[in-house]
Design a protein around this nucleic acid. Structure first.
Lengths: 221, 221
DNA sequence: CCTACCGATCGGTAGG
DNA sequence: CCTACCGATCGGTAGG
C-alpha cells in the first residue's frame, strides 16, 4: 500500500504505516460494535496506548479516521471473504463460496460486532458526506461482485430468469444482512443457518442443472 | 394511554402527557436520522423550545428517553402500517396490505430517516440493555405478525411449503429493510419498487390460487 | 509521535 | 416545568 518505492530506507515510514493501519483497524472494530460516530479519538488512543495527538498527526479530523476505518474494513472483508472465493470458478459455484465465506466471516467474529457494513451503513445512510460516500463505494462493489456471478450463472444456463441478476444480488445481500442483525440481537449464530436455508431454497429454485461443490461448512456448528 | 380515569379534572396531567409524548416522538424522529445514541437531551429540548431540565423531569435518564422513543416509534408504526392492514382479511391479502403500507410508510417519510427500526436495530444489536430489549420486543411483534399471515395463507392452501412461515417472514423483513437502506443511500425511492418486485416474485411463486386485491399503489410514483 | 490547552457539549444532580 | 452547576469527554489547535 506504500506509494513510495523505497520504504525500507526509512524506518519511520514503515513504523508510521503500521501505526496508521492499526489506528484504522481499531476504529473499524469499535465501529462494528458502537457505530462510526461513537468512535472517538481519545478512546482509540487509549486502546492503542498512544496519545490523542498521535492519532491526529495521522488522521487530521475525525471524518478522516471514519473514512479510513471504512477502507480498512473493506480490506479485511476482501481478505476474508472475497479473495478465498476467487479460487472457485465464476458463476454459481463462486457465488456460493462468497455466501459461505460471508457467513463464516460473521460467525468467526472477524469484527467484534459482526458485519462491519451492516453496522455502519444504516447509521450513515441518511447523512450525506465523505463517510457515506465511502460506504456506498464498498457496498456497490460487493453487490456488483454478486451480480457478476449471477450473470455468469445465467449465461451458463444454470439460473432461471424470473429475477434479474441485480434483483437477485439485492435479495442475497438483504438476507445476509438480516442474518447478521438477527445474530447480534439474539447473541447466537443460528440465524446464519436460517439465511443459508432461505438462500438455498431461492437459489436452488433458480438453479437448473449444475452440481455445487459440497465444501460448505455449517456456520456456528 | 393515561392510567388515570379522570384526566380531565387535572389540566396539568393532560399537558404533561402531551409534553411527554412530544419529547418521545421528537427523539424517535431524530433517532431515525442519526441513531438513538446521538439523541441528546439538549438538542431535543432546543427542538421543542423547552429546557433540558424539563425533559429530565419526565425522563430521568437518557436511557429512559431512548426506550420511550422506541415505544413512541412503535405506536406510530402501528398506526401507519399495522392498523390499516387489519381491515383486510387475514392471510395473503393482509400480508400484502402490510407490505404495501410498509413501503408507503417509508416512502412518505413518516420518520425523516425512513424506517425507525432499520435505523436503530443495527445500532443497538450488539449492546445489551433496556434499549435493545425494547427493540427486540418490537421486532418480534412485527415478525410474528407477518408469520401469522403466512400461516393463515398456508392453511388456506394459497402458499407452498418450500419455506416455513418463519423463514418467509424473515425473508420479507430482510427485503423491506434492505429497501429502506438502499433508498436512504441513494436519496431516491426506487429501491422500494425493487423490493416489491422481488417480493411479488417470491410470494407469487409461493402463492397458488388466489387473487390479490389490486389496491396496490406504487411507492414513489 | 508528545503535552497543553481551547470552547462546546454531554448526562446528571440540586433546589426550586 | 425552570436555572445553575458539576465533572467528564468531545474534536480540534498550537507548538514542539
Amino acid at each position: 500500500m506504500s506509494k513510495d518505492a523505497t520504504p525500507k530506507v526509512d524506518g519511520r515510514r514503515l513504523k508510521g504505516d503500521r501505526t496508521r493501519r492499526a489506528i484504522a483497524v481499531r476504529a473499524a472494530e469499535r465501529a462494528s460494535l458502537e457505530g462510526l460516530e461513537q468512535v472517538s479519538l481519545g478512546r482509540i488512543a487509549t486502546d492503542l496506548g498512544i496519545s490523542k495527538g498521535g492519532i491526529q498527526a495521522v488522521y487530521a479530523t475525525k471524518e478522516d479516521l471514519q473514512v479510513a476505518a471504512v477502507e480498512a474494513a473493506t480490506e479485511i472483508f476482501v481478505e476474508h471473504v472475497v479473495k478465498p472465493a476467487m479460487d472457485e470458478p465464476p458463476g454459481l459455484t463462486r457465488l456460493w463460496a462468497l455466501i459461505d465465506r460471508w457467513l463464516g466471516y460473521v460467525d468467526r467474529r472477524v469484527f467484534p460486532g459482526g458485519c462491519f457494513m451492516a453496522a455502519t451503513v444504516p447509521e450513515f445512510d441518511s447523512q450525506p458526506g465523505r463517510v457515506r460516500d465511502a460506504l456506498t463505494v464498498a457496498r456497490r462493489a460487493w453487490l456488483a461482485l454478486l451480480e457478476g456471478q449471477l450473470r455468469q450463472a445465467r449465461q451458463q444456463g444454470v439460473l432461471s430468469d424470473e429475477l434479474t441478476p441485480s434483483q437477485l444480488a439485492f435479495e442475497i445481500d438483504a438476507l445476509l444482512t438480516a442474518a447478521n442483525t438477527a445474530c447480534n440481537l439474539a447473541d447466537q449464530p443460528e440465524p446464519l443457518n436460517t439465511a443459508r436455508a432461505v438462500l438455498a431454497a431461492r437459489l436452488g429454485a433458480e438453479r437448473r442443472h449444475t452440481a455445487r461443490k459440497s465444501k460448505v461448512r455449517r456456520p456456528g456448528g
